[in-house]
């Protein structure tokens, strides 16, 4: 092999470089894809981006560190409402990225408190506590002043900065309208988040998480500080959820309590199970399914001659059937099952 090939192979083994390279590839691909699609598809991709960020954090929490959170919608709500409040009067006091960071910070603060409480609980009790959270937090928005009550708060996305519009146009020849802007923001955030999460998963911290979810007694004996590790996982996942919530506020353009029902939390969970617990690619696939499947199925239904109502009802049915199929035939999720096949082929397991 040539020196360059040897060098590249060696570099590829360094996790950070690997992740960064993949991330850059992803960013570039995304730039071109978003530029060439219609605003409608861009809007869908924006949705997929924030769902994937939330799913990524959740899959690390549940799949990696074994803590079942039934209430991640609550953290999305915190991030979303923070963003909505900051963007309420049009232009935010600081740049949009700052708004997103603020949303993450506020959500992490809440997440840390919940995580510390949850670290003392086990299994079903964590699930129960987080479920209570999922119900309580959106209701808070109904009772506190300034959060818009049932109607919620409008969110106006700030104007696309000219430098961004020009840069994108130079690279891809496409204009950036507000809908697409959120898509660009979302996918950039997604790539960055996934690179960081992938780093964590490959690191010592990630190993600790996997150990404690596998067998927490053995992990403790091996020296792992369970409480600390669990809280850390919780905080990381809520940071992702806060970022996702911030993007969601901009994509949906309104934050109202009914948008963060228990439904959202359970749906996110179902997405990561479908895709494959504990894998980022699984989180991505699950989010893609959540975003594109309902609309695709409904369109297919209408073109197959069904009435609008029937076609609309088809979407949850299709999703449910897929879930059942996955649980029965490929319980490790799509990615998990593919991996198992791969390992078996290579004789690892």
């Amino acid at each position: 092999m040539s020196t360059l090939a040897v060098r590249s192979a060696a570099l590829w083994r360094v996790p950070l470089l690997r992740h960064v390279v993949l991330g850059l590839v992803g960013l570039t691909v995304m730039l071109f894809v978003l530029g060439s699609l219609s605003p409608f598809r861009d809007a869908q991709l924006a949705t997929m981006a924030y769902l994937a960020i939330a799913a990524g954090g959740l899959t690390v929490l549940t799949g990696f560190s074994g803590q079942l959170s039934l209430g991640h919608g609550a953290f999305l709500a915190v991030g979303a409402y923070t963003t909505a409040v900051l963007l309420e009067d049009g232009d935010p006091p600081f740049p949009l990225v700052g708004v997103m960071v603020a949303a993450v910070v506020v959500t992490v603060a809440v997440g840390a408190v919940v995580g510390i409480a949850a670290a003392r609980l086990h299994g079903p009790y964590v699930a129960g506590a987080t479920l209570a959270l999922a119900v309580a937090v959106p209701s808070l928005a109904r009772y506190l002043d300034g959060l818009g009550q049932e109607q919620g708060l409008h969110v106006r996305v700030p104007d696309v900065p000219t430098w961004f519009d020009d840069t994108v146009w130079m690279i891809t020849g496409a204009d950036v309208d507000p809908t697409s802007y959120v898509a660009y923001l979302g996918w950039t955030a997604l790539v960055v988040t996934y690179v960081l999460l992938a780093n964590l998963m490959r690191s010592r911290v990630g190993r600790t998480w996997r150990a404690l979810s596998n067998d927490d007694v053995a992990a403790e004996i091996a020296g792992v500080r369970l409480g600390r590790a669990r809280v850390l996982a919780f905080v990381v996942s809520t940071a992702a959820a806060g970022l996702a919530g911030s993007l969601m506020a901009m994509a949906v353009r309104v934050t109202s309590p009914s948008g963060f029902s228990v439904d959202l939390s359970v749906t996110l969970l179902s997405a990561i199970v479908l895709g494959g617990l504990g894998t980022l690619s699984g989180a991505l696939i699950g989010s893609a399914l959540l975003t594109f499947l309902p609309q695709a199925v409904t369109s297919w239904g209408t073109s197959a001659g069904l009435s609008d109502v029937r076609a609309a009802e088809l979407a949850p049915v299709a999703y449910g059937l897929i879930m059942i199929a996955v649980v029965l035939l490929a319980p490790a999720g799509i990615v998990g099952s593919l991996r198992r096949v791969w390992w078996r082929r290579r004789g690892i397991a």
Partner: peptide
């Protein structure tokens, strides 16, 4: 390597 090292992938 601690959390931040892990996050930025620097602990190889």
């Amino acid at each position: 390597a601690g959390f931040w090292t892990g996050l930025f992938g620097l602990g190889h």
